[in-house]
Amino acid sequence: MRVLSLVTSDTSSFYKNQVRLLRASGVELTTITPKNPSEGETRRLGDYLRLYPQMLRQSFGSYDLIHANYGLMGPLALSQPNLPVVLSLWGSDLMGKYGTVSKLCARRSDAVVVMSDEMASVLGQDCEVIPHGVDLDLFVPKPQSIAQGTVGWSSDEYHVMFPYNPQRPVKDFPRAERIVDSVNQRFDRPVNLHAVTGVPHEDIPTYMNAADALLVTSKREGSPNTIKEALACNLPIVSTDVGDVSERLSGVTPSAVSQSDETIVDALEKVLEAGQRSNGRGAVEDLSAESATGQLRSVFESVLSY
């Protein structure tokens, strides 16, 4: 099977892992992605349009299908007349300001993949629910004291991990700062908020094992991988009720899903006071990256069997 993959960014960890596993399963895969914008800039329509000649030329080659990753790649994938299209929606493309574009492209695609039941409900059409999988060999529980020594965090303080770029408005870092400031007033022991971003993906498990809690304050999510990765490390989680987080944290303790700042503050205080790891790994044992990739390949095969 030969797949032409269109993606907004080929640097995301779960996409790179997906490509690796698809290739290991025998899929020949070529990635096309827009040029990264300069620092402080965002992509424009022209950045996507410039991909069209390359994509059209390759669509006349020996590929079997196009896999469009993220809704904004949908119009490009559907503009060629030769190959069937599988559209994967990641969350913010469907739930955010480009939701209309994503829905229109989904109707014209040969198959659509979403990451959660909530996304399937919002989409309102037949689709496959395949959450992004977790590398369960990389994200494993390790002794907190060793992890804290590696990242340089004091064992005499609390450490709350914020797993996103603070500059992304949808992740709402200012809210995370307010919450941790409020929690700090309830403890004699300092509570530190760490925005862990820009580090190699293989180092993220060390930070998760060093932290006392993961704090997610996102306004919107699909099926956030950071939640599943933290579960695999048995890191307690406090999160806003977005995407499939409530489903993922069902039965996981200590952890909490809350909405108002007040309840999130109370929940984070209780998690830190508990001072213990969660039972989260058992909740993600069926969400391996290998399993998710196998399901995606099955979608490809189903489209090609039409």
Rank of each mutant, 00 (worst) to 15 (best):
V242Q: 12
P174D: 05
E202K: 13
A230G: 06
T253K: 07
P236I: 03
L215N: 08
V216K: 12
D203A: 15
V245L: 12
F173I: 02
T197N: 15
R220M: 06
G198P: 14
S246F: 05
N225E: 03
T253P: 03
R248Q: 11
A210K: 06
T206D: 13
L193N: 14
K228A: 13
V245Q: 02
R248V: 03
G251E: 10
R220F: 08
K228N: 12
Y207H: 13
N192C: 12
T197S: 15
I227P: 06
S182M: 08
T206R: 11
R220E: 08
T217G: 05
P190G: 10
S250L: 12
E247M: 08
T226P: 06
I204A: 11
R220Q: 10
S218I: 06
Q185M: 12
V180P: 00
N209E: 11
M208Y: 10
P224I: 06
V183P: 03
R175T: 04
S250D: 15
S250A: 14
A230H: 07
I227Y: 11
P190F: 05
L193V: 14
S239C: 11
T197A: 15
E229G: 04
D203Y: 13
G222D: 00
Y207I: 04
D212G: 04
E229L: 05
S218C: 05
N184C: 10
V196K: 07
D212F: 01
V196Q: 14
T240R: 13
V252R: 10
R178H: 06
Q185H: 10
A213N: 05
I204S: 05
D181V: 00
K219T: 10
T197M: 13
R178G: 00
N184L: 01
G222W: 02
N234H: 01
T253C: 06
V183M: 02
T217W: 08
N225A: 01
A195D: 13
A230C: 06
H201Q: 12
V238H: 11
G243C: 06
D244L: 02
D241I: 01
V180S: 00
A210Y: 08
G243F: 04
S218M: 08
P174A: 01
A232G: 09
S223I: 02
V216R: 03
Q185F: 04
C233Q: 04
C233F: 01
D203T: 14
V180D: 01
S182T: 05
P200W: 13
G222I: 05
R186T: 11
N209S: 13
I237Q: 03
I227G: 05
T206F: 13
V196Y: 12
R186D: 07
D244E: 14
N234S: 05
E177W: 04
V216L: 15
N209M: 13
N209T: 12
D181A: 09
L214G: 02
S223G: 11
V183Y: 00
G243D: 03
K219I: 09
S218H: 09
T253F: 08
T217S: 07
S239F: 05
Y207W: 14
L235Y: 04
T217V: 11
V191C: 14
L249D: 09
L215W: 04
V199L: 15
T217R: 10
D181R: 00
G251L: 09
Y207L: 07
